[in-house]
Design a protein around this nucleic acid. Sequence first.
DNA 1: CTGAAAAGCAATCAATACAGTTGCAGTTTA
DNA 2: TAAACTGCAACTGTATTGATTGCTTTTCAG
Lengths: 148, 148
Amino acid sequence: MLDIRFSRALQLMLFLAVAAENGSAPLSSAELAHRLHANPSLVRKLLVPLTDEGLAVCVKGRTGGARLGRPADRITLAEIYRCAVGDKPLWAPSPGVEPVCAVTAHAGEYFAALTVEAEEAVLGSLGDRTLADGVRELRRLDTGCARH
Amino acid sequence: MLDIRFSRALQLMLFLAVAAENGSAPLSSAELAHRLHANPSLVRKLLVPLTDEGLAVCVKGRTGGARLGRPADRITLAEIYRCAVGDKPLWAPSPGVEPVCAVTAHAGEYFAALTVEAEEAVLGSLGDRTLADGVRELRRLDTGCARH
DNA sequence: CTGAAAAGCAATCAATACAGTTGCAGTTTA
DNA sequence: TAAACTGCAACTGTATTGATTGCTTTTCAG
């Protein structure tokens, strides 16, 4: 399954982060949609879990829009990941019907433990990076390229 | 999407591992299919990448079937994972069309780096465990349960 | 106070990856 | 030589999820 939700959510938060740096007004879903090449309604759907967790804040009404819920250096990519994929496990277990032997009886259990461990590894790697780091990295890539 | 290929491949290899321990004949795809509650043809499809990498060996003809390609203590779960999911990245990037600003220009690059790092973390966690460890763990879970 | 501009939300459509099946050709051995 | 396998290609079905549409509600500028 090609899941692009994390990628989308990350890009969205990066936009909000640079807007926060510039002190600009909240970004409307239409503005974000344009930058993401997506539909405003889709952007609002992506924002739901992010606002639920306080990573973003949406203000309604005219002149409304979205902005960061906290400073970018206090938002980790692990948090964004959790919002984007929700409770979906990293890997799905094969549909376990009645086990046919002693070994398979606990295969589901074993696999679940593996999944948890792998997810922790992923979150660990993402937890080391903040949104502010991401913005810095993008700028570095950009200026590095501009030199050529 | 919920990808159950790794789970299936792992179960398959566990079956082969216990068969190897018992010194029994190669397991036919029909036998494996029965234990996995699947179709023999589907099992053979799952076996293709595993045999390509030498983790399993399939012998054709009457009395044919599948067995481990190496001792179970020299097969890591990371190898099984790689076979099961192939080149599919852990996360897919959002379809990157023309970037609209300097920040997004390298977002794909940045995201790819994140993906690689996360994949390495996952493979690291899986690389610590061998198939033999898995069999031991399943037995432990089984006897632990039987005591109650 | 009123209209414009925004978010929020529900229903629905559409693309696609993947699980699963069928059928047959090739191979080996009892 | 026939049975019991694997190998392989083509196909179908379906669930997930990306994406759209069309509303209602909220807020603020003028």
